[in-house]
């Protein structure tokens, strides 16, 4: 199956920079009595797509929240390119190159598509308050450069130029998911966390999204960590799959290894032993 499209790639995107490695080491997370994560360890290799799968409530989103910094692990640590980020403030992680989309779309409804995407570039902006209020030359140059960058690298790439001036609220669900990906890409991330990027999408939208994710990984060299229930897509595009169940990693490895793993089969399909793909 070929998801690759024959698109012309701008020169700047042709030398992939290698994304950073992300490692989760022995992370424990508790909510009152619930142990949402128990000693979870895995790593996402630089520039590769790693999928995290598991039944509902297994703790997939919780892992993402720990990596983003919303939850502080009770034990263990998280490293990005070797640097410990376990207790780094949430907003500081954007500068280190962590970008993310949410399981339930989290766009800004008071802003247009373009403004939403521009916010991805927020952490690169430098203009001072006074300079912004008088819209000084340096502010203008910075804003225009951001606009050009976002247009060239993200809006053209994701084929959303026709909707750029619309308010996000009027877009259909699949488009909103794409805009959220656009916003994450505008951050120029090293690591991209995607929480169920194709949930609720039809076949065609799913294939588009899968193609975009592959393109991002190949052309931008970004490390991708993907949570997804669509097994067809997971097995197609990931180079490594980590399986969570009740907050524990029960298997990890290449799609082929994981799909035949007896514990995975049991967790997913009861006892029948069918192929989860």
């Amino acid at each position: 199956m070929s998801l690759r499209a024959e698109v012309e790639v701008p020169a700047v995107l042709q030398e992939p920079t290698q994304g950073l490695a992300l490692a989760v080491e022995g992370v424990d997370l508790r909510f009152g009595g619930i142990r949402a994560l128990r000693g979870v360890s895995f790593s996402a290799e630089p520039g590769k797509i790693t999928a995290v799968i598991g039944p509902n409530g297994a703790g997939k989103t919780s892992v993402f929240n720990a990596i983003s910094g919303f939850y502080r692990p009770a034990a263990g640590r998280i490293t990005l390119g070797g640097e410990d980020i376990t207790s780094m403030p949430i907003h500081a992680r954007a500068k280190r190159g962590i970008a993310r989309t949410f399981q339930n779309i989290a766009l800004f409804h008071g802003l247009s598509v373009l403004e939403n995407i521009k916010l991805g570039g927020h952490h690169t902006m430098r203009a001072g308050l006074l300079s912004a209020m008088v819209y000084s030359r340096s502010t203008r140059d910075e804003e225009v450069a951001l606009r050009a960058e976002v247009e060239r690298k993200v809006i053209d790439f994701l084929e959303i130029d026709h909707i750029r001036h619309l308010p996000v609220g009027v877009l259909p669900y699949g488009m909103q998911k794409r805009v959220e990906l656009a916003r994450a890409l505008a951050m120029q991330p090293q690591v991209l966390l995607l929480d169920e990027p194709v949930a609720g999408m039809n076949r065609e939208e799913t294939e588009d999204m899968a193609r975009f994710i592959l393109d991002v990984q190949e052309e931008w060299g970004v490390t991708v960590l993907l949570v997804e229930h669509d097994m067809g897509m997971v097995m197609d595009i990931s180079s490594k799959v980590v399986v969570l169940n009740f907050g524990e990693v029960i298997a990890s490895g290449t799609p082929d290894v994981v799909r035949r793993h007896p514990e995975v089969i049991r967790a997913y399909l009861g006892t029948e032993g069918a192929d989860p793909a």
Binding site: S68, H91, R93, A94, R100, L119, H122, H123, M187
Partner: peptide, 8 residues
């Protein structure tokens, strides 16, 4: 929360 993720 998503503002914070973007580095705000």
């Amino acid at each position: 929360i998503s503002a914070e993720i973007l580095g705000v």
